[in-house]
Amino acid sequence: MTKELIRLKVNGETHELAIAPNKLLLDVLREDLGLTGSKRGCDDSSCGCCTVLIDGMPMLSCVALATSYQDAEITTVEGLARDGELDPVQEAFMSWGGAQCGFCTPGFLMTTHALLEKNPDPTLDQVREALASNICRCTGYTQIYESVLAAAQKIREKRKNEIAISK
């Protein structure tokens, strides 16, 4: 198959890549860019392990053709930490045991990050609904939900402090 030259913006960096037109975004991230945080779980859009943000919206990279997202801002789990500092969501998952085997964790982190960007004060029901596309076989979800609510609180406190400082 003739390769196609495409441009992908991932975690703020633009890459030019020659890829086959049938290549999935997940495979380009993992194989061509070495970003192996996003995982292939089910391979048919029903587990959420491959979740990345496309223009801020969590989506499944295992059913996305890479060539279709050339104008988008793509964020993977590798892009969550800023300046060597973990995202509050990552910290909360660590402190509250939100990850066990870790395979589904990148997907949960991305979906949670997007949820809290939109709604930093979700109810437990809203958290459950937002994470309904992500499957975890270890935790039984309770610790994940605790992590998400803890991250939300952290984000709200951080914002409050920032407002206080700027005043």
Partner: peptide, 9 residues
Amino acid sequence: VAGPLQRNM
């Protein structure tokens, strides 16, 4: 329909 991530796409 499916879940929130599938509905985003």
